[in-house]
């Protein structure tokens, strides 16, 4: 059932704006830092809502190709857990050593999406062009 406006994104954006513009200027000491962290957390969730589904889809496709199978789970999260568990176990055991290039390429793509959600201003993020 679709909820009425405001959307989840709009609610989060509203609270974030309130924290940054109204609350933050009135705070002092350790609370300033905590309030910034709180506002940043809300930005993370907004980016996750906006960019997460596409990132999940790309990661799932990458894992399916690498492992040459599809998950039998019914939703994207459970499929990702299922395939990532196998992916990590196979890196650990050395079974994917001979596919190193493809493994690194997939991991890098996934991480660029992940850091793009968690902290898009991270200086270690490769420039996309």
């Amino acid at each position: 059932m679709p909820q009425d406006r405001a959307t989840a994104e709009e609610l989060l954006a509203g609270v974030e704006k309130f924290l940054r513009n109204d609350v933050l200027p009135q705070l002092q000491g350790a609370s300033v830092y905590k309030c910034r962290v709180a506002a940043n957390m809300l930005s993370i969730v907004q980016r996750e809502l906006a960019q997460g589904p596409a990132a999940d889809k790309a990661e799932l496709e990458g894992l399916q190709t690498l492992l040459a199978r599809e998950s039998d789970k019914d939703d994207v999260q459970a499929s990702l857990d299922d395939l990532n568990a196998e992916f990590c176990a196979k890196i650990r055991s050395g079974e994917l050593d001979d596919q190193r290039e493809a493994v690194i390429a997939h991991t890098l793509r996934t991480l660029i999406d992940k850091v793009g959600i968690a902290n898009p201003r991270y200086a270690g993020l490769p420039q996309q062009g």
């Binding site: 905590k34 962290v37 709180a38 690194i104 991991t107 890098l108 991480l111 968690a118 902290n119 270690g124």
Partner: peptide, 22 residues
């Protein structure tokens, strides 16, 4: 609660590590 946010920084180290081991 502020410790929760640090968990989301693990992936920055993953990105750095890929470069370091490559």
């Amino acid at each position: 609660f502020e410790h929760l946010a640090i968990g989301r920084r693990a992936c920055e180290n993953e990105l750095d590590l890929l470069k370091l081991i490559e």
